[in-house]
Structure formats: C-alpha cells, structure tokens
C-alpha cells in the first residue's frame, strides 16, 4: 500500500499554518488571546502532516452545506 496523504482526502478540509502577521490581525479582529481560539493538539494527524507546532494558529477552510465556504481557526497546543 502506498503512503496515504490524509490532506488529499475528500473529507479533510484545507489546513494552513498562518503567518505571525495574519495571526496578529486575526487576534485584533476578534479581540481575543490566541488561547481563546478553539484548540487543536500537536499530536493531531493533521498537525503532524502540515508540521504545526504549539503556539501556531491554523486556518481551516471548509466546504459547508449552509454557507458554501466557512473559515475556522485552531490554536495548536502540546499533547
């Protein structure tokens, strides 16, 4: 069996590690600390696949039946 790339699976949405500037902007827009975003573990298969480290913020773009496209963010924590 060949190596399976989970990021290419149809049901896995788009993940992207955000840059420092983007994170800062997001923080300002939402008026929160990074810790107040929903969390995602470093041991999450996707974190491993995209190389996210604790402290990173990941942007997730999902196809949504109600909104067409919806954007969410996850704060990566150790564990």
């Amino acid at each position: 069996m060949g190596k399976f790339d989970l990021l290419k699976h149809e049901l896995v949405p788009q993940f992207r590690i955000m840059t420092k500037e983007e994170v800062e902007q997001l923080r300002k827009d939402l008026g929160v600390r990074k810790e107040d975003l929903p969390w995602m573990l470093k041991s999450d298969p996707v974190s491993k696949a995209i190389g996210a480290k604790p402290g990173d913020v990941v942007e997730i773009i999902r196809k949504s039946p109600v909104a067409g496209k919806s954007v969410a963010y996850r704060y990566v924590v150790p564990g």
């Binding site: 939402l30 929160v32 107040d36 975003l37 949504s64 109600v66 909104a67 919806s70 963010y73």
Partner: peptide
C-alpha cells in the same frame, strides 16, 4: 455582535454563528 459564538471569558466556539 460580531456574529461569533462565544462562551464565558470570550473563548470562541464558532467563528460565525451556524457558519452563515
């Protein structure tokens, strides 16, 4: 008011209520 769904202390649960 910014349509985010938040719990106590402002921690975010949804970035836009019901995604739309």
């Amino acid at each position: 008011y910014d349509l985010t769904v938040r719990g106590t202390d402002g921690l975010i649960i949804q970035f836009k209520y019901g995604e739309d």
